[in-house]
């Protein structure tokens, strides 16, 4: 039990984070793409395509944070102080962007809330990339506590990951628009998605080369035998998905680009897990060293097994109720 409970929890939190990245990824992406149109009507349409969903999407972020605290308090107590500034700046960016949904429509002048929405979304995406990089780079721990400085996370690698996440979310957002909207917005999104896809592939390639080079443990994990025999399909699948994505964008596919873009994200995620598992706070703390006591993990697991499927059902219900495309100019007379 002491062995497999943390594994189950790591899988659950991994799932929550993956769902968060997909769901909030596309709606943050809408914010990132916001400045690419000058038309207020098109912005309305873009925002309306995500308005009923964004709140539910962000709930996965809370689940990720709370889940980490519940299941791995020792990791939570190290990661949060280590990444203090990027975490808080991300939260503040989400504040601006979240209230912009409601404030923008009630406001006389839309300009400032347009800016808050776009800047908030972009900043939040950047910070999430930095947080990811902060983890991958490793955190300086002694006696179970963080002992580094306030800016240990600030490296060129973090900058690159931040930009990578921005372009990735923008890709998800663009392909979401291709699927959920009609008219000029959808047409432009299709063109943007192609450019963004190239950016994302470039960033994925850069991370894949950089990490094994900078962190020998990762190089050993991927390139030693027999691991390599099992792992080579990961890059191959990535290439295939990217190709399918491109073709669908070219051929006028509406659903496939979104799905394949999600697939690309998931493969990137799998790649990171392969690189560092079972470390939760690389390079020193594993999931077993940071786990909560079994009593807490079991108590929470019982609730999760009941309520997580329910939460997925509500999410599906809402997406189904608000299915269909958002047309230009709807309900703005």
């Amino acid at each position: 039990m002491e062995w497999y409970l943390p594994v189950i929890w790591a899988a659950l939190i991994g799932t929550a984070v993956a769902l968060y990245v997909i769901l909030d990824g596309f709606d943050l992406g809408i914010g990132i793409l916001f400045p690419t149109t000058k038309s207020e009507g098109e912005r309305d349409q873009m925002m309306r395509s995500i308005a009923p969903f964004w709140d539910g999407n962000e709930t996965w972020l809370i689940l990720g944070g709370a889940g980490l605290w519940v299941a791995f308090p020792r990791a939570y107590a190290v990661i949060m102080p280590a990444l203090y500034l990027p975490v808080i700046v991300m939260l503040l960016a989400l504040v601006f962007r979240g209230v912009a949904f409601e404030f923008r429509v009630v406001s006389h002048s839309k300009t400032s809330w347009n800016f808050a929405f776009a800047a908030g979304s972009t900043t939040a995406a950047f910070c999430q990339g930095v947080i990811l990089a902060g983890l991958v780079q490793g955190i300086h721990v002694e006696n179970g506590a963080y002992v580094g400085g306030s800016f240990d996370w600030a490296t060129p690698f973090a900058l690159m990951c931040g930009l990578g996440v921005i372009s990735g979310y923008a890709l998800l957002g663009a392909t979401w628009l291709v699927m959920k909207t009609e008219g000029p917005v959808a047409v432009r999104a299709r063109e943007q998605a192609k450019t963004l896809l190239l950016f994302v592939l470039a960033f994925m390639a850069a991370v894949s080369l950089w990490t094994p080079y900078a962190f020998p443990a990762i190089a050993t994990r991927w390139f030693s035998l027999p691991n390599f025999l099992f792992l080579w399909p990961v890059p191959l699948l990535t290439a295939l998905l990217a190709f399918a994505d491109w073709r669908a964008l070219d051929k006028g596919g509406e659903f496939v680009p979104f799905i394949t873009s999600i697939g690309l994200f998931m493969l990137g995620f799998v790649g990171l897990v392969i690189s560092w598992f079972p470390y939760l706070v690389p390079p020193s703390l594993t999931i077993w060293q940071t786990a909560a006591v079994p009593a807490s993990q079991i108590f929470m697991l019982m609730g999760t097994l009941v309520f997580l499927p329910l939460a997925l059902c509500y999410t599906a219900l809402v997406y189904w109720l608000f299915r269909g495309k958002v047309k230009p100019g709807e309900s703005y007379h």
Binding site: E58, L63, A66, A77, A311
Partner: peptide, 21 residues
């Protein structure tokens, strides 16, 4: 964390998903 964490975890699972969705 062993004690309070799960209470907040239950809040997310039983309440937040319900209201937000």
């Amino acid at each position: 964390g062993n004690v309070i964490g799960p209470l907040i975890g239950y809040e997310v699972l039983t309440a937040f998903f319900l209201e937000a969705s």
